[in-house]
Design a binder for these strands. Structure first.
Length: 427
RNA sequence: GGAGAGGUGGCUGAGUGGUCGAAAGCAACGCUUUGCUAAAGCGUCGUAGCUCAAAAGGUUACCGAGGGUUCGAAUCCCUCCCUCUCCGCCA
């Protein structure tokens, strides 16, 4: 969340930057400021009374020891107590309202975030490789996966409903090979520590990373237990250090985690999309970083490069785009999306979104570090990016490496993980 | 799920109604002494809010969480949560 002091002291800047996101969130600035003013007024008044009460209470203690009758003062203090209670309620109420409001205000886009109204204005940053040229009409992954008995969409529907899939045989094995390949790459080559987190998380964790309170309708909830299925490993992994004061010497902290991700995709336009493109459950390897504020932009570049490395090693053509102010996510200050080419789709698919959240998440989750010089507790910056999403990587992979005879030739990097060089029809 | 024990500052641990944000020890940091190390001495050493132009200072809150009793609560009462041990169940 945004620092209320920043809103107070640099109101115009905050308003302007929020405005760049589009919509009308910027209008919440005035609301939060007026709430803040009443809150502080109530607080100050309350504290003056409490101070008075503390002082007199001590005097009563002394007087009683000397055997004096203190009942008149006590009666007087009772009325002060009542006023304190009332003011306390008022202050607590205003504080809660301010907190709620602050939690629903998105992050400020960074100066380095390109201005723009919508996805159409996202600039392309770079392109790697070229679109593969096939000597035949490419099949899409649904056809390929079904023919090779790797993907069973009907079974997914039977067991769990639409937008669920069953991987089987070589498909299940390929998925597992990809997971291992990605984790090994990031842990042994890029210096990330592997994490295997719980898949059910508390609401506090989701507030910390920004999914709650605003996006509850996108989450699967286990109401009996007050837990949610995670929509991304970003949630448990970033929250590993929630409410901690970390030693700056250990920064940057770099974590890599494989987890399934669960998303309701309520109201999502693409939910009817054919195949694996948009599922309620999909696998993902997520990269998370916690670093010093001055390092976060450089870390974002590294993080993005680490995710790109996946596609390079797999020989998949991709492009990197930068999200403009009108398109970046709720908590993000700057985001790169990596889109891989899928020949069967004839389009680019987003397989990674790498974001610098600045101190937006760490403030929400009270994650801090003690500054070596000033000894003050400051908020570190958090980042995360997919490294990468598996389902769409699967799509790009089988569609790119499909052969004229309907088999799939796997790229060399994956062969040791898969245990074979190609996937053929098992029958 | 059943029974019991317990939750106090980075850690250990004292504190059963008043001057306690909290003794003491350890750890950490700074200074002094010291050829280095070690040791000793002195000092500093929680978090958040409000106030203040800022710093200093002042002030409030926080002893698992939330309520209650009281002029006054770490301390008394209630509810909840968590941890540990044992039993049951279980991958």
């Amino acid at each position: 969340m945004l620092d209320i002091r920043l809103i107070r002291e640099q109101t115009e800047t905050v308003r302007t930057r929020l405005r760049q996101r589009g919509g009308d969130v910027w209008t919440l600035v005035d609301e939060v400021l007026s709430l803040d003013e009443s809150r502080r007024k109530a607080e100050t008044e309350k504290q003056a009374l409490q101070s008075e009460r503390n002082r007199v209470s001590k005097e009563i203690g002394f007087a009683k020891k000397q055997g004096q009758d203190t009942s008149p003062i006590e009666a007087e203090m009772r009325t002060i107590g009542d006023r304190v209670d009332a003011l306390n309620k008022e202050a607590a109420d205003l504080d809660a309202r301010q907190e709620t409001l602050l939690l629903s205000i998105p992050n400020l886009p960074h100066e380095a975030c390109p201005a723009g109204a919508s996805a159409e204005e996202n600039p392309e940053v770079r392109v790697w490789g070229t679109k593969p040229v096939l000597a035949f009409a490419p099949k899409d992954h649904v056809v390929l996966g079904t023919e090779l008995k790797m993907l069973d969409f009907e079974a997914g529907v039977k067991i769990s409903g639409s937008a669920f899939v069953v991987y089987r045989g070589a498909g299940a094995r390929l998925e597992r090979a990809l997971i291992n390949f990605l984790l090994d790459l990031h842990t042994t080559q890029h210096g990330y520590t592997e994490i295997a987190p719980p898949l059910l998380v508390k609401p506090e964790a989701l507030v910390g990373t920004g999914q709650l309170p605003k996006f509850e309708d996108q989450l699967y909830a286990c109401e009996r237990d007050g837990l949610y299925l995670l929509p991304t490993a970003e949630v448990p992994v970033t929250n590993l250090h929630r409410e901690e004061i970390v030693d700056p010497a250990v920064l940057p902290i770099c974590y890599a985690a494989y987890t399934p991700c669960f998303r309701r995709e309520a109201g999502s336009a693409g939910l009817g999309t054919r195949g694996l493109i948009r599922m309620h459950q999909f696998d993902k390897v997520e990269l998370v970083k916690i670093c010093l504020p001055q390092d976060s932009m450089e870390e974002l570049e590294k993080l993005t490069a680490n995710a790109e490395r996946v596609l390079q090693l797999l020989g998949l053509h991709y492009r990197v785009i930068e999200l403009c102010t009108g398109d970046i996510g709720f908590g993000s200050a700057k985001t790169y999306d990596i889109e891989v080419w899928a020949p069967g789709q004839g389009t680019y698919l987003e397989v990674s979104s790498c974001s610098n959240f600045g101190d937006y998440q760490s403030r929400r989750m009270k994650l801090r570090y003690k500054d070596a010089e000033t000894k003050k507790n400051l908020f570190p910056h958090t980042l995360n990016g997919s490294g990468t999403a598996l389902a769409r990587l699967f799509v790009a992979l089988v569609e790119t490496y499909q052969q004229a005879d309907g088999s799939i030739a796997l790229p060399p990097a994956l062969q040791p993980y898969f245990g074979a060089a190609e996937i053929r029809n098992p029958s």
